[in-house]
Simulated scan of single mutants.
Amino acid sequence: MKKVLVLGGSRHFGRGVVERLRDAGLDVTVLNRGSSPAPPGVAHLIADRDDEAGLKSALGSRSFDVVLDQVCYTPVQALIARRVLRADRYVMTSTIEVYDQVQTFTPMTESLVPRSPVDVELPWHDEEFLEAHYGEGKRQAEAVFAGGDASFASVRVAHVLGGDDFTGRLRHYVERLDAGDAVEIHAEPRPATFIHASEIADFLTWAARADFTGPVNAGSHGELSALDLAAAITAEPRFRIVERDASPFSFDRYAVLDTSRATDLGFSFSTTTDWLGEAIENLRKA
């Protein structure tokens, strides 16, 4: 039986990944800081991944066939994981934000992000710095793992909607527009790629069991702009044009993923029209 360690996996789509891996018959262990228990049938280790000694103590002599790292945000965290974790395959949940410096008007392929130079001296422990450099932190973390001994894959996840979404970004649109208020957008909001929480859980489960290496984009077909999201909520959306501090998902750059690599590897994505309406209605019911 294949042994899988999931770092994080306590909320949103992460818990769905853990449950799917368990139900597929894998021997699953979750490691987190103890914020929530693991699902039934899943082993649970409690440690802070930033505490190298504590992480070593929690893991002991354990080794794994696959590590699925849901919560790696910095090269410092990646280096600790490389030193401590023993696994044949390492899969990191990355993000569409690694493309935040790419200027294009065509779907973005994985090759557009070069391997970043790693700088562990930057203040990655500072929450404000990390938030402002989210994409760079993920790029450098990818670079650290790519230079390790384990077989490595990074899943560059599109913007996630639906499910138990704690971010409140789609809710922002639903509540404002249903109340007849306006949402703030750029003068020319650009489209981006989205994916439903259940679909990214399916994809990460599939990726953990696969054997491909390198980065792969994950997102539903059917790009959406802030205008498209608003139109899916109400027939008469109201907007306010701003230069900055726009509503979530109003982008001033084209941010659409090319998912052909994932498709060629054997995964079939849905289309946003398959699930967007239901995601909106679920927020209204909540």
Rank of each mutant, 00 (worst) to 15 (best):
G163R: 05
A158R: 01
L59P: 00
V113Y: 07
T167A: 14
V118D: 01
A132Q: 15
F166G: 00
S94V: 15
H133R: 05
V67G: 02
T74R: 07
D119H: 15
V98S: 05
G147N: 02
E110R: 10
E131H: 07
S116K: 06
P123A: 13
L161S: 00
S94Q: 14
A58D: 11
L85R: 07
R156M: 10
A143T: 08
V144K: 04
T74D: 05
F129L: 12
P75D: 13
E121T: 15
A132V: 14
Y90A: 01
L122F: 07
V71P: 00
V113H: 07
R86P: 03
P123V: 12
L122H: 09
P117D: 13
G137P: 02
S94R: 12
S57Q: 13
C72V: 14
A146I: 01
A143V: 03
R169Q: 14
G147H: 05
D165V: 11
V157T: 15
Q70I: 01
F145A: 11
R86Y: 08
E110K: 08
G137K: 02
L68M: 07
L122D: 11
Y73K: 09
A141E: 13
G137I: 04
L79R: 13
L68W: 00
V113N: 08
E97W: 08
D65R: 12
F152V: 10
P75F: 15
D126R: 03
H133F: 05
I80L: 04
F105R: 14
P107G: 09
Q70N: 06
T74G: 08
W124R: 01
R86T: 09
Q140F: 07
P123H: 12
T95Y: 10
Y73E: 03
S116E: 13
V155G: 00
A158K: 00
L68N: 04
E110L: 03
V118M: 10
M92A: 08
F152P: 00
A58L: 03
V157W: 01
E131R: 14
I96K: 12
W124G: 02
Q140T: 06
E97L: 04
R139G: 08
H133I: 06
E121K: 13
G168C: 11
S94T: 14
A150L: 05
C72D: 08
Q103F: 09
V67M: 05
E131N: 09
G60Y: 03
G135L: 13
L85A: 05
R156G: 09
G135R: 06
A143C: 01
F166A: 03
V91Y: 08
Q101C: 05
R83Y: 15
M92R: 04
A158S: 12
A143H: 06
T104M: 05
Q70K: 02
L112H: 09
G163K: 05
F129E: 09
S116F: 10
E121Y: 13
D164P: 00
E121N: 15
